Amino acid sequence: MDTYVKTNEFTNPPNYAFDSHRLRKILRDSSKQPIVLVACGSFSPVTYLHLRMFEMAKDYVRQNTNFEIVGGYLSPVSDQYNKPGLLSAAHRVNICTLAAEETSSWLMIDPWEAFQNYQRTAVVLDHFDYEINTILGGVHTQDGEHRDVKIMLLAGSDLISTMSEPGVWAVEDLDHILGQYGTFIIERAGSSMDQATDNLARWRNNIHLIPQLIQNDVSSTKVRLFLRRGLSVRYLLPSAVVDYIEENDLYLDDGSNSEKEKGKGKDNGLGKREGDLAKGS
């Protein structure tokens, strides 16, 4: 097996700046390990389900772990992912920013992935680690002690299903994502988490499974279909996102037919995508 080589050399998009305005720099409890949650996905458009998974993770962390969350990020995928129904990166970053600012006090958007060539999930997590721990210097306890922040992937259970399928993800990438960083997996309807995690047993201690207590099957695909049919999506998305979509006449025709939507691959909109498949993809 090839070994994943972590890098600290990243190419930034033009005029890029890492957003840390809501990143908490001082730990509330010095006995806990600081973590940042990162959700990668299309977010085309972002829905309440995308935002809700951060709150579910926050509850789980507080009740079941020795972690302390100091920030959460949405990282929209690059336009070069070429998924049917994928709105331009500029619009997706705008609507994610509107959603975070309207609904949350701790979520942020990182446009690094969106405005450049396609980046593998492992590289995206390395980028967050570099920005938060190397550039910003991590966080501190109330007594001034330095602490590095653990970066963790937040995703839906259909992502873990793709990770458990042989040949879909490069093994060295999986080892880096699940071994170096770890993940919180949100249960989604129709996805079995038990079988998937059995196939990923070597990383079991770094995979945290969060049950879905209130079923929610709202998806970006369904929202786009509603919009193309002229149906209301209000109360499925944050109101600022609905207003933005209406003001810019978005998703009236996203170029997707029903067969394309059915074949949209393994992108769950919550986690990542089948594109991290083979080595070097």
Rank of each mutant, 00 (worst) to 15 (best):
17 A>T: 15
17 A>Y: 14
21 H>N: 11
21 H>Q: 10
23 L>V: 08
25 K>Y: 05
27 L>S: 02
28 R>N: 10
28 R>C: 09
30 S>G: 10
30 S>D: 11
31 S>V: 09
32 K>M: 03
33 Q>G: 03
33 Q>A: 07
40 C>P: 01
41 G>L: 01
41 G>E: 03
42 S>W: 05
43 F>M: 04
45 P>T: 08
46 V>Y: 05
47 T>V: 10
48 Y>T: 10
50 H>A: 06
51 L>C: 11
54 F>V: 11
55 E>D: 15
56 M>R: 14
58 K>M: 13
59 D>P: 06
59 D>N: 09
64 N>H: 14
68 E>M: 04
68 E>W: 02
68 E>N: 01
69 I>K: 04
69 I>F: 03
69 I>A: 02
70 V>L: 02
70 V>Q: 04
70 V>F: 02
71 G>T: 06
71 G>A: 12
72 G>N: 00
75 S>M: 10
75 S>Y: 06
75 S>A: 15
76 P>N: 05
79 D>F: 07
79 D>L: 08
81 Y>R: 03
82 N>M: 12
83 K>P: 01
83 K>E: 04
84 P>K: 07
85 G>V: 05
88 S>M: 13
88 S>D: 10
89 A>S: 06
89 A>H: 01
90 A>W: 11
92 R>W: 04
94 N>P: 07
96 C>Q: 05
96 C>H: 00
96 C>R: 02
97 T>P: 06
98 L>V: 14
101 E>H: 14
101 E>Q: 10
102 E>Q: 15
103 T>N: 08
103 T>R: 10
105 S>N: 14
105 S>A: 11
107 L>N: 04
107 L>F: 06
109 I>M: 00
113 E>Y: 07
117 N>Y: 13
119 Q>K: 13
120 R>V: 12
121 T>L: 08
122 A>I: 13
123 V>Q: 10
123 V>R: 13
125 L>F: 05
125 L>P: 02
126 D>T: 07
127 H>K: 11
128 F>S: 00
129 D>H: 15
129 D>C: 14
130 Y>E: 03
132 I>Y: 05
133 N>F: 09
135 I>K: 15
135 I>D: 05
136 L>I: 15
137 G>E: 07
139 V>C: 06
139 V>Y: 02
140 H>L: 08
